[in-house]
């Protein structure tokens, strides 16, 4: 008897956001500002030299001054990250659908997916970089290896935990495998898949950075990790921090973007995306 709770214009909003959302934005923001303030104060008070620990203001200044180089590197890293995430999503989805169609396929190939996941990417990155001629391609492969497992494992669990009764219902009406997959298993696995995707988003960034480090140590690549290495060699510590800040921001942004996607896809029906106050 309750009206759909996303009916527009029905609830109070502050600056376009429901009142309950504000603490979630403000609380971390306040803590962040306090920390940055404390950091700046400590750096100044104890007169810490910038080549050991620059303050946030110095970092911000470097960020602005070096923006042309840094933004180029940011674009390079983000391109690898996004590509890796896309490939990981597509491959992960395809693989888990394959797994869900046959227990045999799952039994045969899951161990290898696990193996790929538990092998540290730093250890295989040099090999991949040697084997694959194209540096971009080898970075992409490294990032993909790190990112694809959460999608595979989550989606597989989702596909396999479909409501038994609903499966029976589909069987009763003579649904084909394809119909069951499209109309039942995939939608039911959606929350699991999206949870995996959010983890994979962060991991693909980590994968890209790690691969860049390995490649950057050899002088190839121009992403943010390479800037960090380069700044380290040149003792330009503020620039190192600026690059680091960009990586963290990107990570947070990717997470927020994927959370938004997840929320938009699930808000009509899934518990995780529903507001609690109804």
């Amino acid at each position: 008897m309750t009206p759909p709770d996303d009916a527009p214009g029905r609830e109070r909003r502050i600056l376009g956001l429901p009142p309950g959302t504000w603490p979630r934005i403000l609380a971390p923001l306040v803590v962040g500002l306090l920390l940055l303030g404390g950091w700046e104060w400590a750096v100044r008070h104890f007169a810490v030299p910038a080549y050991i620990l620059p303050g946030p203001v110095a970092i911000a200044r470097t960020l602005v001054a070096d923006w042309p180089t840094l933004s180029g590197s940011l674009a390079v890293t983000l391109r690898i990250t996004v590509l890796a995430l896309l490939v990981a999503t597509a491959a992960g989805l395809a693989l888990s659908i394959l797994f869900s169609q046959s227990k045999w396929v799952e039994m045969t190939f899951l161990p290898y997916a696990v193996m790929l996941q538990v092998t540290p990417v730093v250890a295989i990155a040099p090999l991949i970089i040697i084997w694959v001629d194209n540096i971009q391609a080898s970075l992409l492969i490294c990032a993909w290896i790190v990112a694809f497992f959460p999608v595979v494992s989550n989606t597989t669990i989702g596909l396999n935990s479909t409501d038994r009764n609903l499966l029976d219902l589909f069987r009763l009406y003579g649904a084909t495998r394809w119909q069951t997959l499209v109309h039942l298993r995939l939608p039911a696995a959606m929350p699991f898949f999206l949870a995996g995707l959010r983890i994979s988003g962060g991991l693909s960034l980590i994968g890209a950075i790690v691969a860049e480090f390995v490649a950057g140590a050899g002088g190839a690549s121009s992403g943010l990790a390479y800037r960090i290495l380069e700044s380290g060699y040149q003792l330009q510590i503020p620039r190192m921090f600026a690059a680091l800040a960009l990586i963290s921001f990107s990570g947070v942004l990717i997470f927020l973007a994927l959370s938004l996607v997840s929320h938009l896809m699930l808000r009509r029906w899934h518990e995780s995306a529903l507001r609690k106050d109804h």
């Binding site: 409501d163 009764n165 609903l166 029976d168 219902l169 589909f170 009406y173 003579g174 649904a175 119909q179 109309h183 039942l184 939608p187 039911a188 959606m190 009509r268 029906w269 899934h270």
Partner: peptide, 22 residues
Amino acid sequence: FQEPTLMPWKTAIDNVALPLRL
């Protein structure tokens, strides 16, 4: 079934129409 066994991602009418859709 003992439980309603509806697809939570579908509206009531789409749930009812499921057998026809199949």
